[in-house]
Amino acid sequence: MIVFHVNGKEQRVDVTPDTPLLWVLRETLGLTGSKFGCGEGLCGACTVHIDGRAQRSCITQVGDVQGKKVVTIEGIPENHPVKTAWLAQEASQCGYCQPGQIMSAVALLAQKPRPTDTDIDSAMSGNLCRCGTYGRIRRAIHAASGKASPKGGKRS
């Protein structure tokens, strides 16, 4: 039995410890907001926070999050400044990459409340978007800058 917290709630899952966290979230816990894009840590669609840091859940074994705090897109409050900025900039296109993008952005702003373009490049370049929403994401991050809750990813 592996025990960890997801969006503030304790979860006990009975799966083999080498199962990637992504599939435990999606299939065992039904939290399908975190997406599968590559399975190799190359696209960022599966990004979640583990103890406050943005991590790729597709290459994180669930056995390694034992006792840790995981936040997924479902745990970001609706009124979070990043979400508000995303809506204002109409960042989404197909939307598939967006939960991962938002999780990376929330983590970035929690760490650096006023990121520069270079900070955005380095924090966000692991999150691919086939639809090409990068310009809007950059604007949204700047718009949310200075407004994000310091911890980021607080539970609603």
Binding site: T32, L87, S92, G95, Q98
Partner: peptide, 27 residues
């Protein structure tokens, strides 16, 4: 006009094919 589908796409509730689940479903 604002996109009607944006809210669902940023809170993880938009259902893509890969998100479909059903009782007794196998993968």
């Amino acid at each position: 006009a604002k996109r009607l589908d944006s809210p669902a796409k940023i809170n993880g509730t938009a259902t893509f094919g890969i998100d479909v689940q059903a009782p007794g479903m196998l993968t």
